[in-house]
Amino acid sequence: MTEFFLIIGIGMCVLVLLCLYRATYGPTILNRAAGISAIGTKTLIILLLMGVVYDRIDMFIDISMVYALLNFLGTVVLSKYLERSGEA
């Protein structure tokens, strides 16, 4: 079963690399913010899959919860700042 999770993890890493295109070449800042939020969600799932592969998932759950929180917070703060400053 762990080989299956490893293959899924490699597939998600490829998807992260694809999302990086939008995070670097997006025409405006908000495009990049959306790309970073998508990368954050995939990173969270990759963390949990690595925990299952190394059979120590108890350590990785707290970290992934904190990362979900920080991803949400960063996106909301950035969008509020850009809305206030008036440029896309």
Binding site: D58, M59, D62, I63, V66, L69, L70, L73, V76, V77
Partner: peptide, 19 residues
């Protein structure tokens, strides 16, 4: 027992105030 401790907990508490 798990990753955490003083500094990490303090940062998360401050994150709630930022929100």
């Amino acid at each position: 027992y798990s990753p955490g401790g003083g500094f990490q907990g303090g940062v998360i508490l401050a994150a709630s105030f930022v929100l």
